[in-house]
Lab assay of single mutants.
Amino acid sequence: MKVIFLKDVKGKGKKGEIKNVPDGYARNFLFKKGLAIEATPANLKELE
């Protein structure tokens, strides 16, 4: 799953980066803790 990092996550990504991460990791950790959001076309446009 492609995500946009909202905060730095040690060993995974830095704020503003767009990366592919495992689906479970994104849903169960990154999204729940507010560390990242899904890289949807709308979210990507908002980032620019």
Rank of each mutant, 00 (worst) to 15 (best):
M1T: 13
M1L: 14
K2A: 13
K2H: 09
I4W: 03
I4V: 11
I4M: 09
I4T: 02
I4P: 00
I4D: 01
L6M: 07
K7V: 14
K7E: 10
D8F: 09
D8I: 03
V9D: 01
V9Q: 01
V9E: 01
K10Q: 12
K10E: 12
G11V: 01
G11P: 04
G11N: 09
G11K: 05
K12T: 12
K12D: 06
G13I: 07
K14I: 09
K14S: 09
K14G: 06
K14Q: 10
K15M: 10
G16D: 05
G16Q: 03
G16E: 02
G16S: 04
E17R: 03
E17I: 02
E17P: 00
I18M: 07
I18G: 01
K19E: 03
K19L: 10
K19M: 10
K19T: 08
K19P: 00
N20R: 13
N20K: 14
N20M: 15
N20T: 15
N20Q: 13
N20A: 12
V21S: 02
V21G: 00
V21A: 03
V21F: 09
V21W: 02
P22E: 11
P22G: 08
P22I: 06
P22Y: 08
D23W: 14
D23I: 15
D23H: 13
G24R: 12
Y25T: 04
Y25N: 04
Y25H: 03
A26E: 06
A26Y: 12
A26Q: 05
A26W: 08
A26K: 02
R27D: 03
R27Y: 12
R27V: 11
N28R: 11
N28V: 06
F29P: 01
F29Q: 06
L30F: 02
L30A: 01
L30K: 00
L30R: 00
L30V: 00
F31D: 01
F31I: 13
F31A: 02
F31V: 06
F31W: 02
K32L: 12
K33T: 09
K33D: 06
G34K: 11
G34F: 09
L35K: 03
L35V: 04
L35N: 01
A36I: 07
A36D: 01
A36S: 02
I37P: 00
I37M: 12
E38W: 07
E38H: 07
E38A: 11
A39Y: 14
A39P: 03
A39W: 12
A39L: 08
A39N: 03
T40M: 05
T40E: 05
T40I: 07
P41K: 10
P41G: 09
P41F: 10
P41R: 09
A42P: 07
A42D: 15
A42K: 12
A42Y: 08
N43D: 07
N43R: 10
N43G: 08
N43W: 07
N43S: 09
L44Y: 06
L44T: 07
L44E: 06
K45D: 09
K45R: 13
K45H: 11
K45Q: 12
K45M: 13
E46Y: 14
E46S: 13
E46D: 12
L47Y: 14
L47R: 09
L47Q: 10
L47V: 11
E48I: 14
